[in-house]
C-alpha cells in the first residue's frame, strides 16, 4: 500500500485576543495551539481513526486536513503535494479527491435542496455537465442502499440514518481517494449505527477508498479501523495499529479512555481508571507532560519534563515517561 496522506508537524492556531490586547497585557502570544505538532500517515485503502474527547482538537485537525482552516506551520502532503502551499486552482483538484462526512447528518444538507440535487452538487461545482444527473443520483442512492424515490425528499423529511446515508452518497459522488468522517455515528440509534459502519466498511472494500474517522466512541473504533491515534490537548499521545492499542494500550490516557466504558457484560472489561478533574484549558497548558494533572500514575518527573515519543516498532508510538 502506498502513502496517500502524510501530515508532518502540523500546527493549527486560533486567535484568542487581538494583537493590541496581548501587547498591552505583555503576554507572549495572542494565539492558542488547537493542534500542536501532529504527524501521521494514511495509506491507500486504510482506515485511520482519531479518538479524543471534546476540546482535544480532533475536529480542528480534520478541518485543517480538508482545507477549511489555515495552518500555522507544518505540511499536509496528499499524494506528494503539499496542500498548505497549493494555489487555488490546484486546491480545486485536491477537493475533487477528498470528501467529508459531517457530524450533523441533517445539518450538513442544504435545507431547501432536494436529496437528488444535493448528492449531485459536486458535479455542478466542478462543472461536470456531461454526466446525467438523474442517472448519477440513482446510482449513488443505490450505492448507499436508498431507493431512487428519495431523490425528491427534503432533508427534514429524512430520519437520522437516512440523512447519514445521503451524506455518504454525496461524499462518494466524485469517487474520492479519501473520505474524512467526523463522528459518523453521532446521533444515531444503536441499531442504525451498525448499518452505517457496515456501509462504510463495504464501500471501502468495494471502492478502495481511505477513511479518516474522527470519533469519541471507542466502541466503534475497533470494528472499523486499521490504525488509531489518541489525541489530548491537540497532540497525539499514542498512535498505532488499532488491534494492538485495544489489547495493550501504553499511554495512561488511552488506558483510562478504554476503561471508562460502561458495558452490559463484564466480560473483558478493564479495571476502571478514574481520571481526576477535566481537560485543562488550551490557554494554560500544564507544564511537563500535559496529561500529568489528571494522570493516576504521574511522578515528579512528569510535572517538569515533557516526554518524547517512544517508538515500540511496527509503527506504534506513545508519548509518556512511564508507559504501561
Amino acid at each position: 500500500m502506498s502513502q496517500l496522506l502524510e501530515v508532518n508537524n502540523l500546527r493549527v492556531q486560533f486567535r484568542v485576543k487581538s494583537s493590541m490586547a496581548s501587547w498591552l497585557q505583555k503576554s507572549e502570544s495572542p494565539f492558542i495551539d488547537a493542534v500542536r505538532d501532529v504527524s501521521f500517515k494514511i495509506k491507500e485503502g486504510e482506515t485511520f481513526t482519531l479518538v479524543g474527547e471534546s476540546g482535544s482538537g480532533k475536529s480542528t485537525l480534520a478541518n485543517a486536513v480538508v482545507g477549511l482552516l489555515p495552518t500555522a506551520s507544518g505540511s499536509i502532503n496528499f499524494m506528494g503535494d503539499d496542500v498548505t502551499q497549493m494555489p487555488d486552482k490546484q486546491l480545486m483538484a485536491y477537493r475533487k479527491q477528498i470528501s467529508m462526512m459531517w457530524q450533523n447528518p441533517t445539518g450538513s444538507l442544504s435545507p431547501r435542496m432536494q436529496v437528488g440535487d444535493a448528492i449531485t452538487e459536486p458535479y455542478k461545482i466542478h462543472n461536470l455537465s456531461d454526466r446525467d444527473k438523474q442517472q448519477e443520483a440513482k446510482r449513488l442512492l443505490n450505492l448507499v442502499g436508498l431507493s431512487a424515490r428519495f431523490q425528491d425528499r427534503y432533508p427534514h423529511q429524512l430520519s437520522g440514518g437516512q440523512a447519514r446515508r445521503v451524506g455518504v452518497a454525496r461524499a462518494l459522488a466524485l469517487n474520492p481517494k479519501l473520505i474524512v468522517a467526523d463522528e459518523p455515528t453521532a446521533g444515531l440509534d444503536v441499531s442504525v449505527q451498525g448499518e452505517i459502519l457496515n456501509l462504510l466498511n463495504r464501500l471501502q472494500d468495494d471502492l478502495g477508498v481511505s477513511l479518516f474517522v474522527i470519533t469519541h466512541n471507542l466502541n466503534i473504533v475497533r470494528h472499523i479501523s486499521d490504525r488509531t491515534a489518541i489525541m489530548y490537548l491537540g497532540r497525539f499521545v499514542e498512535e498505532g495499529p488499532t488491534d494492538d492499542i485495544f489489547v495493550n494500550p501504553h499511554h495512561p490516557y488511552t488506558l483510562a479512555l478504554l476503561s471508562a466504558n460502561p458495558e452490559v457484560t463484564n466480560v473483558g472489561a478493564l479495571e476502571r481508571i478514574a481520571l481526576k478533574g477535566e481537560v485543562p484549558s488550551l490557554m494554560h497548558r500544564p507544564s511537563g507532560c500535559e496529561f500529568h494533572t489528571r494522570c493516576p500514575f504521574a511522578q515528579e518527573l512528569c510535572a517538569t519534563v515533557a516526554p518524547v515519543g517512544i517508538d515500540f516498532g511496527f509503527e506504534y508510538s506513545a508519548t509518556c515517561h512511564y508507559p504501561r
Binding site: 467529508m100 452538487e121 461545482i125
Partner: peptide
C-alpha cells in the same frame, strides 16, 4: 455545516451565496 460542506466540495463563494 451545509455551508462548510460546500466549501470543502470546492464551491465558489458566488455559488454558495446564490444556491445555498
Amino acid at each position: 455545516e451545509f455551508i462548510k460542506a460546500e466549501q470543502v466540495m470546492g464551491a465558489s463563494t458566488a455559488r454558495i451565496l446564490r444556491v445555498h
